[in-house]
Design a protein around this nucleic acid. Structure first.
Length: 847
RNA sequence: GCCGAAGUGGCGGAACUGGUAGACGCGCACGACUCAAAAUCGUGUUCCUUCGGGAGUGAGGGUUCGAUUCCCUCCUUCGGUACCA
């Protein structure tokens, strides 16, 4: 009988849907396992062959785990809010919900064609009110929380308010935007407006005037990770810096936990490294420098406090608050000009001429804290306002950028570490001893750093300090197609809605564009007010809001009382295996960890890392080795291949292409080999008999079970496909027709090619789906061999092979080998210098 | 620049903790079946060779009886990041 994949696949797709075969229960006596794919944004293009790669891998793993007796949660959904649908809406006037719905339908059809064992009853869509109610709810909790450094977790703001009214800021150690100090009396005396203002300094979701990446073309702000080389990631439009009032999330409160948490999760080193760099922890000290003839002090952050005796000037970021105050009259014009210029320049331009040294002298002088010498204060855009304190002590002998600046403006360079050569460049190495450094002279650098920090703390002019590159995340977008903020304004201050007012649904608007007055699109909505008439926030949340907790919603997608029930969360716990692209390294994958830690602090989830193990699938490139894209016209559509070869062939071929994690070019020709393999497999089942299995066939089977099992556990699917091919070749060769062997083969193939496996399984007389069969064990007994063919090499080169019993001792093997005619030829009468015998491996004769 | 990953036949790729390099598949060549073609099956396929062998896993060196695997130097490609003090 012919392998009629069209009929077979249609039949089993229907069967699985009708029987709800892959429904996962929230209660089970079986151990749980959670396998998750990064859910897709349903774009108008549909899927190309690159998308299913990860889904196929996770589906194989899922089906394997089921066969091993696990209750597996394997859901799928859609990251449905986003820019493309909105851009389309602006162009055509069609509501983004309609576009999104259509695209989702298309995705669903394509996904179903591939035979994934998703529990479709758990599908989620981030754009549905029933879903985003809980995205809004989490935001609300962030707004109502502050970060207590003493307990190292988020706590309710109400408790903070109570503490403030009892004893002011005394005894409170919070993660804040700026340090605040006031007494209980002062707190009580504050107006409501002032209180709210003060509280926003503590809240984990707060409004702030901040420099943001503004994209005029898209009409919205972007997060740092949505900007690539000064252009928007989506669309490639220019991005400029602009001061705007925005919602921010205080992710920086979690910097340390986000960093240390990496040690306990199984993610690739590359990815952990990216997150580490993004968080960018560096240890050093903060130091105060007095300004000559002023009460102002300049606070700097440095990782090298030991080099302070080499500090020959100071540099402030052009936007630094002190610039205006300390700038002298004669320098004012030049300085103002420079500041103006910096503001105008976009990120992109600033990046383009990194090598260009520029700056202006403010006319002011700082007093060196140890030598009491006067050193000039400059401004330059190589010092960034957002990092450290926005000011540095410049040590041209120890920092290359300072060196270039000093050389350019002819500022003295004083070496402070032995083996420095100031005429050539800065010495940034951390070996050598201190020179020209008063009480530090002769100390090694690490000792000098500690000595200096002790001294600073004693003198009260500085302290040890840890700094992070990580910034609080801008959380508002001036767009329509996203989650509205559950926020209204009273007296200009933000307040949250009541929980029972959620979800705050997206209003209808006449156009998906900003208003004439420049307000975000929600400004077009009629009566966009709270129930008591206060205006609602006009922003919407960014794309990553909904994806930061979706893995929890799958556990209990219909719940209307909570984001998921306690029972469901306690049962499923965190994700055991997460598969998706590495492009989300510093976006989604950081935010989902942040939100999980926050929900952990709120006692909503018992774990504080969302994904125990994460694997990044590599990209499938076009046949030429380029990225697949519509514009290049090299997109391979999976639907066409399914029509021609069937889903089982496509699934196996995608796995066969190469290691899951590697990028690899697509070559449609190769699919024939896998298709032939499935045909051969199918043929094996003609004339199956209940006969006694042949020894050789048992060896073939058990070797394959062993190989495939370890491959799946290591996510090495390409080698299991090879193993199946070898197995089927061998069984065909020996005309195997043993039912027991062929039944086991069907089970181990089923995670890879589920449709054909179901069909075979049914033909073998089984009534239940193969999905819940028991994975066969392998027996080492069948893998034992009586003899082993030794490759015999002379000086490392293989010259002949000899089959010997595995019972032989090393000495016996040696003499058997040396007796061989070819050995005699190579030895040519003289005795070997040495003979190495590795049992069941090799024999090497040294001559 | 810095960080990370990777370089193996014509191509995708195998090779467990150092032990037969090139499994499996594609492609190609030849053969069988066929009036013919497709499909299918079989054989061969790293390169050079005076048919004894020799060379060979990006390049060069090292450790070892033995290196794709370990160590050092360098080159190339891809991904990330970029004045982070």
């Amino acid at each position: 009988m012919r392998y009629d994949f069209v009929e077979i696949e249609k039949k089993w797709r229907k069967y699985w849907a009708a029987n709800n075969t892959f429904r996962a229960d929230n209660k089970s006596s079986k151990p749980k396992f959670y396998v998750l794919d990064m859910f897709p944004y349903p774009s108008g293009q549909g899927l190309h062959v690159g998308h299913p790669l990860g889904y196929i891998a996770s589906d194989i793993y899922t089906r394997y785990k089921r066969l091993r007796g696990f209750n597996v949660l394997h859901p799928m959904g859609y990251d449905a809010f986003g820019l493309p649908a909105e851009q389309y809406a602006i162009q055509t006037g069609q509501h983004p919900a309609i576009t999104t719905e259509d695209n989702i339908e298309r995705y669903r059809t394509q996904l179903e064609l591939l035979g994934f064992s998703f529990d479709w009853e758990r599908e989620v869509r981030t754009c549905e009110p029933g879903y985003y109610k809980w995205t809004q709810w989490i935001f609300m909790q962030l707004f109502k929380s502050w970060y207590n450094k003493k307990t190292d977790k988020a706590e309710p703001i109400d408790a903070l308010i109570e503490a403030l009214s009892k004893s002011g800021t005394a005894g409170i150690d919070a993660h804040t935007s700026e340090v605040m100090e006031f007494t209980a009396a002062e707190w009580i005396a504050k107006s409501e407006h002032e209180k709210q203002e003060a509280l926003s300094n503590y809240r984990l979701a707060y409004l702030s005037e901040a420099y943001v990446n503004w994209c005029p073309e898209l009409g919205t702000v972007l997060a740092n990770e949505e900007v690539k080389d000064g252009l928007s990631e989506r669309g490639g439009f220019p991005v400029e810096r602009r001061m705007m009032k925005q919602w921010l999330l205080r992710i920086t409160a979690y910097s340390d936990r986000l960093l240390s948490g990496l040690d306990k999760i199984e993610w690739s080193e590359a990815l952990k490294e990216m997150q580490k760099n993004w968080i960018g922890k560096s240890k050093g000290a903060s130091m105060l420098f007095s300004v000559d003839g002023s009460d102002e002090k300049i606070k700097v952050f440095t990782t090298r406090p030991d080099t302070v005796f080499g500090a020959t000037f100071m540099v402030l970021a052009p936007e630094h608050d002190l610039v205006e105050q300390i700038c002298t009259e004669d320098r004012k014009e030049a300085v103002d000009d420079y500041v103006e210029q910096t503001k105008k320049r976009s990120e992109r331009e600033r990046m383009a001429d990194v090598k260009q040294v520029s700056g202006e002298f403010t006319g002011a002088w700082a007093i060196h804290p140890f030598s009491s010498e006067k050193i000039p204060i400059w401004i330059s855009d190589y010092v960034l306002l957002g990092y450290g304190t926005g000011a540095i002590m410049a040590v041209p002998s120890g920092d290359q950028r300072d060196w270039e600046f000093a050389t350019h403006f002819d500022i003295p360079i004083v070496p402070v570490v032995s083996n420095s050569d100031p005429s050539k460049g800065a010495n940034e190495d951390k070996d050598g001893v201190m020179i020209n450094s008063d009480f530090l002279d002769g100390l090694k650098i690490p000792d000098a750093i500690n000595t200096m920090i002790d001294r600073l703390e004693k003198d009260n002019t500085g302290e040890a300090r840890t700094n992070y590159k990580l910034r609080d995340s801008v959380f508002s977008r001036q767009r329509y197609w996203g989650e509205p903020f559950p926020i209204y304004y009273k007296d200009g201050m933000p307040y949250v809605l009541e929980e029972n007012e959620l979800p705050l649904e997206l209003p209808e608007v006449d156009k998906y564009l900003p208003t004439e007055t420049g307000d975000a699109p929600l400004g077009r909505a009629k009566s966009w007010n709270s129930e008591d008439g206060h205006p609602l926030d006009l922003n919407t949340m960014p794309g990553w809001a909904g994806s930061s907790w979706y893995y929890l919603r799958y556990m209990d997608p219909g719940n209307t009382d909570a984001l998921a029930s306690k029972e469901a969360i306690d049962y499923w716990q965190n994700v055991d295996l997460y598969i998706g692209g590495a492009e989300h390294a510093t976006g989604h994958l950081l935010y989902v960890r942040f939100w999980t830690k926050f929900l952990h602090d709120l006692n909503i989830v018992p774990f504080d890392e969302p994904m125990k193990k994460l694997v990044n699938q590599g990209m499938i490139l076009g046949p030429g080795g380029e990225k697949m894209s519509k514009s290049k016209g090299n997109v391979i559509n999976p639907d066409d291949l399914v029509v021609k070869y069937g889903a089982d062939t496509l699934r196996m071929y995608e796995m066969f292409l190469g290691p899951l994690q590697d990028a690899k070019p697509w070559d449609t020709h190769g699919i024939e080999g896998v298709f032939k393999f499935l045909n051969k497999l199918w043929k094996l089942y003609d004339g199956v008999e209940d006969s006694e299995p042949h020894q050789l066939d048992l060896t073939t089977l058990h070797k394959t079970i062993k190989k495939v099992q370890s491959d799946i556990e290591n996510l090495s699917f390409n080698t299991s496909v090879s193993a199946f091919m070898i197995c089927v070749n061998e069984l065909s060769q020996s005309n195997c027709n043993s039912k027991s062997i062929l039944s086991d083969l069907a089970i181990i193939v089923s995670p890879f090619a589920p449709h054909i496996a179901e069909e075979i399984w049914e033909k073998l007389g089984n009534k239940e789906s193969i999905s819940f069969a028991a994975y066969p064990g392998y027996d080492e007994e069948y893998l034992q061999q009586d003899t082993y063919v030794y490759p015999v090499s002379f000086n490392g080169k293989v010259r002949f092979k000899i089959e010997l019993s595995v019972e032989l001792s090393t000495a016996e093997i040696e003499s058997e080998v040396l007796e061989h005619d070819i050995s005699k030829k190579w030895l040519d009468g003289s005795p070997p210098k040495r003979v190495i015998v590795v049992p069941q491996r090799i024999v090497n004769v040294v001559i």
